[in-house]
Amino acid sequence: MCGAEVGALPEGMQRVARALQEQGHPHAPVMLSDAARTAQQAADALGVAVGQIAKSIIFRRKDDDAAVLVITSGDRRVDEKKVDALVGKTGRADAEFVKARTGFSIGGVSPLAHAQPPVTLIDRELFRFDEIWAAAGHPHGVFKLAPQDLERLTGAPVADVTQVPA
């Protein structure tokens, strides 16, 4: 993606596109015609399994008000007790907190290019797939990557952070 193409994207996607370029990632963000605010919407738009969608869930750490980003497989639910055991007690983050800390609106939170670097954990369940898709800073924006790319791009550890499926 060249500079002119990046400039045509919404601001949040521009930040993500630049971060991906700077780290040599081969896949630029793409704009979907329909919103991909949920994992299911993204999976439907891309024609992939919902588990291949890397959801970005933001929590608010209670002791220092830090943003905690949990990147999880779209077909899994985060187990907050497991997250708390790894990073300290967390609580829900409202839309204002998410926007202020990440620079992205809920439904478009990318795993990288945040306004303030979050504490990040990657769900090990994403490694069931060779190819995954993550939000690219806008509810219509996504980018393709492998789970190993997510580790490299974020520098975050892989952990068991989800509930056992029923």
Rank of each mutant, 00 (worst) to 15 (best):
R18F: 07
A135L: 03
G74S: 12
L121I: 09
Q116W: 00
E5P: 01
H140D: 12
Q163W: 00
R37V: 15
E96V: 10
A35Q: 14
G91N: 06
R124N: 12
V48Y: 09
L46S: 08
R18G: 01
G24P: 11
S105F: 00
P10K: 08
R61C: 06
S105C: 02
S73W: 10
V164D: 12
H138S: 06
A159V: 07
L9D: 04
A17H: 04
P118V: 05
V119G: 02
A54E: 03
G24R: 10
R15F: 01
E125A: 15
L121K: 03
V68D: 05
Q40G: 00
G47C: 03
H114G: 07
A39I: 07
A39S: 13
P10T: 11
E5H: 02
A156L: 04
A43S: 06
I122K: 02
C2T: 11
I71A: 11
L112Q: 05
L153P: 02
E151P: 00
P147M: 11
L32M: 02
P165C: 11
V158A: 03
M13K: 06
D94W: 03
V30W: 01
A66E: 14
L150C: 11
D130F: 04
E96D: 12
T38A: 02
M13I: 08
Q52K: 04
Q21C: 13
H140K: 15
P10S: 09
A42D: 04
H114S: 07
Q23R: 15
F127G: 09
V16N: 03
P10A: 12
V87N: 03
T72I: 12
Q148Y: 00
D123E: 11
I71L: 13
A95Y: 01
A134C: 15
H25I: 11
I57N: 08
V50S: 08
L86A: 09
G91F: 02
A100F: 02
P111E: 07
I57V: 15
V83H: 05
L112M: 10
G3Q: 12
